[in-house]
Simulated scan of single mutants.
Amino acid sequence: MIAIMFDLFEPLFADAVAREFAAGDLLFRAGDPVVSMILLRARQAELVRHTGHGLKMILQRAGPGHILAEASAWSDSYHCDAVVPEPRLAALLPRTVFLWRD
């Protein structure tokens, strides 16, 4: 997500459910249905894919204020894993709320 978008999306998450994740937790896995959009409140998360050879490719390191895999809002399932290397706080917003329009 580009920096100019952060201020646009932050108000959507004002009433979102806060959740703490422990180091090593998966926020979602490739193939999981997209149910929630996740805004990081503290620290980092990594978007990861694994190759057929077992190599781990880090697609993105997202930090505070980033929405993880925001393009997934328009997909039925995630295309990568999201893992947290250390404890962090995130806000979860239902996908339907994220996509709702007046």
Rank of each mutant, 00 (worst) to 15 (best):
D32R: 01
T51V: 03
A90P: 00
L59P: 01
F98I: 03
A82T: 05
P11M: 09
L55M: 11
F13T: 01
D76Q: 15
F98K: 04
R88S: 10
I38K: 01
R88N: 13
E10S: 02
P64N: 09
L59H: 05
D7C: 04
I2P: 06
F13S: 09
D25A: 03
L8F: 04
A71Q: 14
A23M: 03
A18I: 15
A73N: 11
M57Q: 14
P85F: 00
L93R: 02
E10W: 04
R29M: 07
S72Y: 08
R88M: 15
L92T: 05
V97D: 11
F13Q: 12
E86V: 07
V17I: 12
L89T: 05
R95S: 06
A73L: 05
R19E: 08
K56N: 14
V83R: 12
M37L: 06
P33Y: 03
M5Y: 12
L27H: 01
D15M: 07
F98D: 13
A18L: 10
A23K: 07
H50W: 10
A82W: 06
F6D: 15
V48Y: 05
V48D: 06
V84T: 09
R43P: 00
R101P: 06
M1W: 03
P94D: 01
I4F: 12
C80P: 09
T96W: 10
R95K: 07
L40F: 01
S75N: 14
L40D: 02
A71N: 10
P94N: 06
T96V: 04
I38Y: 09
P33W: 04
V97M: 12
T96G: 14
H79A: 11
P85S: 04
R95H: 00
L68Q: 09
A23D: 14
L93Y: 01
A14F: 14
I2E: 13
M1S: 07
E46A: 03
S75E: 15
V35T: 10
L40H: 00
M1F: 01
Q44I: 13
G65W: 02
E10H: 02
I2G: 09
E86Q: 08
I4P: 06
P64R: 01
Q44F: 08
L68F: 01
F28Q: 04
A42R: 04
M1N: 07
I2T: 10
M1E: 04
G24R: 00
S36D: 10
A18C: 15
F6H: 11
L8Y: 10
A30L: 09
R43F: 05
A3P: 07
L12G: 13
R88D: 07
F21A: 06
P33T: 08
M37S: 03
S72D: 04
P85I: 11
F9V: 12
V84W: 10
F9Y: 07
R41A: 00
F28T: 02
F13H: 03
E86H: 11
A22Q: 08
S72L: 00
M1T: 08
L47I: 12
V84C: 12
F98E: 08
L59M: 02
D32P: 01
V48P: 00
V17A: 06
F6V: 14
A16L: 03
D32Q: 05
H53I: 11
I58M: 14
G65P: 02
P87Q: 05
L39P: 06
D81W: 02
L27D: 00
L39N: 00
D32K: 02
P11H: 03
A71M: 11
K56P: 12
